[in-house]
Simulated scan of single mutants.
Amino acid sequence: MNMAFFGSSLVSAYWNGAATYYRGLIRELHSLGWRVTFYEPDAYGRQQHRDMDDPHWAKVVVYPPTQDGVDACLEQAAGADVVVKASGVGIFDEYLEREVLRLQSPSTLVTYWDVDAPATLARIDADPADPMRANLPRYDLVLTYGGGRPVVQAFEKFGARLCVPIYNGFSPETHHPVGCRARFRADLSFLGNRLPDREARVEEFFLKAAERLPSRSFLLGGNGWDGKPMPGNVRWLGHVYTADHNALNCSALAVLNINRESMALNGWSPATRVFEAAAAGACVITDAFTGVGDFFEPGREILVAGSGEEVAEVLADLSPRKARVIGLAALARAMDQHTYARRARGLDWLLRGEITDREAVQCA
């Protein structure tokens, strides 16, 4: 089976939080017999900040950020068994959303894969003239990386034929426990880029907690935080390459997850880093979101806080032994239920037309 995948980037996680999600699923699809060609634009400095070479499990085509470049890739993609247009490519998104549908045929399934479904849904809900309103019902399939029943129902309201969440996960080959590293030692670490619908929540759940615990150390990784006022006990690392994520997750007493505003409001949208931190055996503290218990058991496998004050309270009460116990429980749950191998198995059945039931896909 051949897949042509139009996405932001497979080889660079620079300003590209979907990279490890794409990698995990595509690597596992390859092991199930898929031949994937990933088309990504040379844009936003991602090729200059690669964190991996072209993999053996996918063909990577980097095209110039021009319409001619896009058209050449569309021509190459013709005849694939499955064509995927992912959200957030970053250039010519609207054009690609329309043009991939020209590749649709009885032998070519065309799929829209949304890695930021709340943003897409809010956009098309607010604008009756949004072209995606007309395009969405034409796709054979809509996939999302989270959102649960609310997102499925919203896409169906706009005419999606079938919408199936394919949740984030992790690959044990790339995310696993490692030794501590002095550079990443802290009482609480958070990794995330500075984005408009996340910044206020970082202020609340991370910076406010740091203010309340001046004797504790806090570590912030991610792009865009230069110039941001921070308490003196917060250390900013800048971009952290994926090769360092295991060490980052294993070196702090606890790792904080903060959902973007839209994801938190929607629920059922655990970030990739929740699973990656759990895979490293880290004790994860997450901001509260609906559906968290469907992925990890609060209090036993993950700690949940509803505010920065609660984050501070949880951290103040957290001993190294308790953190270790919670981290190991999370690791066991992740290995049992949240690997990309498991996610890809259900996706493979879905794309081959062997099943159409959402629950069966997610329980594969």
Rank of each mutant, 00 (worst) to 15 (best):
F5W: 15
F5D: 03
F5H: 13
F6M: 04
S8L: 13
Y22M: 11
I26L: 15
E28H: 09
E28K: 07
L29Q: 01
L29V: 08
H30N: 15
S31T: 15
T37H: 07
E40Y: 05
D42Q: 08
Y44E: 14
Y44P: 00
H49R: 15
D54A: 14
P55T: 13
P55F: 09
P55I: 13
W57N: 04
P64N: 08
Q67C: 03
A72M: 07
L74T: 07
A77F: 09
V84I: 15
G90T: 11
I91S: 00
F92A: 06
D93F: 02
D93E: 14
E94N: 13
Y95N: 02
L96P: 09
P106H: 07
T108W: 02
V110F: 01
T111D: 02
T111S: 07
V115L: 12
A126H: 08
A129H: 08
A129F: 12
A129Q: 13
R133F: 04
P137L: 09
P137R: 05
V142E: 01
G147L: 05
G147K: 02
K157Q: 14
F158D: 05
G159E: 04
C163F: 01
V164M: 03
Y167F: 15
V178M: 09
C180A: 13
R181F: 03
A186H: 03
A186D: 06
N193Q: 07
L195P: 00
R201V: 07
L207W: 05
K208Q: 14
A210Y: 02
R212K: 15
L213T: 09
L213A: 11
S217L: 11
G221H: 05
P229E: 14
P231K: 09
G232V: 08
H239P: 01
A243S: 14
H245M: 13
N246G: 04
N249L: 01
C250A: 13
V255S: 10
R260L: 12
M263N: 15
G267Q: 14
A271P: 00
F275T: 08
A278I: 10
A278L: 10
A280E: 00
C283S: 09
I285M: 07
D287V: 06
F289C: 06
T290P: 00
G291D: 10
R300M: 06
I302R: 00
E313R: 15
V314D: 00
L318G: 04
S319A: 11
K322F: 03
I326S: 02
A329Y: 04
A330I: 04
L331M: 14
A334G: 08
M335V: 04
Q337F: 12
Q337P: 01
T339G: 05
T339F: 04
A341T: 11
R343V: 11
D348Q: 05
W349Y: 14
L351M: 12
I355H: 06
T356H: 10
D357C: 13
E359R: 14
A360T: 10
